[in-house]
Amino acid sequence: MTKLLRLPAVIEVTGLGRSTIYAQIADGKFPAPVKLGVRAVGWPETAIIDWLNTRPSAAAA
């Protein structure tokens, strides 16, 4: 079972803000969350790590 990250953890790991995360989800550029309940969502940790690994690194710029 993979660990699920809630929004504050995703914000901390990615450095993105809440609005940016949801805008990128709408554009298909960020992994969609998994529903945990009526008002709760989480992101699989592996999906966030995979997304981070596909981003260009700052060192390459």
Rank of each mutant, 00 (worst) to 15 (best):
M1S: 10
M1K: 08
M1C: 07
M1H: 06
T2F: 04
T2D: 12
K3P: 01
L5N: 00
L5K: 00
L5E: 00
L5Y: 01
L5V: 00
L7F: 11
L7H: 11
P8W: 01
P8F: 04
A9D: 12
V10N: 00
V10D: 01
V10Q: 02
V10Y: 00
V10L: 02
E12A: 15
E12H: 12
V13E: 11
T14D: 01
T14N: 03
T14Q: 00
G15F: 04
L16D: 02
G17W: 13
R18P: 03
S19Y: 05
S19E: 08
T20M: 10
T20N: 07
T20G: 14
I21C: 05
I21P: 07
I21H: 07
I21Y: 06
Y22T: 07
Y22K: 10
Y22N: 10
A23W: 08
A23N: 14
A23L: 15
A23Y: 12
A26Q: 13
A26H: 06
A26W: 03
A26T: 06
D27W: 11
D27N: 14
G28E: 15
K29V: 07
K29I: 08
F30G: 07
F30Y: 15
F30P: 11
F30C: 15
P31A: 09
P31F: 05
A32T: 14
P33C: 02
P33S: 03
P33D: 01
V34A: 04
V34T: 07
V34G: 02
K35W: 02
K35L: 09
K35Y: 03
G37H: 11
V38R: 13
V38G: 10
V38P: 10
V38M: 08
R39L: 07
R39I: 05
R39V: 03
R39A: 08
R39S: 12
R39W: 06
A40E: 09
V41D: 09
W43A: 02
P44H: 04
P44K: 04
E45H: 12
E45Y: 10
E45V: 09
T46P: 03
I48E: 03
I48H: 05
I48G: 01
I48Q: 02
I48W: 04
I49P: 12
I49C: 08
I49D: 14
I49V: 15
I49A: 13
I49M: 10
D50N: 14
D50A: 14
W51V: 14
L52I: 06
L52S: 03
L52K: 08
L52M: 11
L52H: 02
N53A: 15
N53W: 04
N53M: 13
T54S: 11
T54H: 13
R55N: 10
R55F: 04
P56I: 11
P56T: 12
S57E: 13
S57P: 06
A58K: 14
A58S: 13
A58H: 06
A58N: 08
A59H: 08
A59G: 09
A60K: 12
A60I: 10
